Computed example of a mutant assay.
Amino acid sequence: MDLTKLTAANKIRNANATAYNQCQDWTLADWSNAIAGETGEMCNLIKKIRRGENIDVQDVGRELADIVIYADLLADKLGMSLSDCIQQKFNEVSDRIGSDIKL
């Protein structure tokens, strides 16, 4: 999936959905806390898998998706493109570790 499609859909849904009206005045801290909350939920599922509990990995995937969606919203609030941030960071790490694999 192209992250620019996610960003466009996120902007429209966030601006128009009744459920998101409460988010219109969120601060950067609110958006980052949302990411932290979803990350905590994902970590809890991984902990349960580690303990041997029968957790559907699709549930982990849904939490990962929540993290990315909130990260995209936060990047937009900062006037940034999550896609650009990912590409720049990936390439930076490739340079640091001496890899010629770039995005």
Rank of each mutant, 00 (worst) to 15 (best):
D72R: 07
S81R: 08
L64G: 09
K77H: 15
A9W: 06
L73I: 08
S94K: 04
V57W: 15
L73W: 08
A15F: 04
G40A: 08
R96V: 02
W31Q: 07
D56A: 10
I12Y: 14
L73C: 13
K77Y: 14
L73V: 07
Y70C: 09
C43Y: 13
R13V: 14
N21R: 15
I35M: 09
A29P: 03
N44P: 04
K48Q: 14
N44W: 11
R13D: 08
L82R: 03
I67A: 09
M80R: 14
D72Q: 09
F90Q: 03
N91T: 00
A65K: 09
L78F: 11
L74A: 12
K89M: 01
L28T: 08
M80N: 14
A34T: 06
L73P: 00
D84I: 10
T7Q: 13
D84W: 09
M42N: 06
C23E: 14
D84S: 12
I55R: 10
S94T: 04
D56M: 03
T7V: 08
N10V: 01
T39N: 04
R51H: 08
L82I: 01
I67M: 11
E92G: 01
I69G: 04
L64W: 10
D56L: 06
I67P: 10
F90Y: 14
I69V: 12
A8P: 03
R13C: 04
D76E: 13
K5S: 12
D66N: 07
L45R: 13
D25P: 00
E41L: 03
T27P: 06
S94R: 02
I67E: 08
L28Y: 10
I12H: 11
L6F: 07
C85N: 14
N14P: 00
A8S: 13
A71R: 09
A36T: 03
M42G: 01
N21K: 15
C23K: 14
R51W: 13
D25E: 10
N54V: 03
T27F: 11
G98H: 02
K77P: 03
S32L: 09
V60Q: 03
D30M: 02
E41D: 10
I97K: 12
D84E: 12
I49N: 06
N16H: 14
D25Y: 12
D72I: 07
N44L: 05
E41F: 02
L6A: 10
V68L: 13
E63W: 04
Y70P: 01
V60G: 04
K89Q: 11
R51C: 12
N14H: 15
L6M: 10
D30W: 08
R96C: 04
T18F: 11
A71G: 05
L28V: 06
R96W: 03
D59P: 01
Q58G: 03
L74K: 07
W26I: 00
I67C: 10
I86F: 11
L82P: 03
A29K: 14
D84H: 10
V93D: 05
K47H: 08
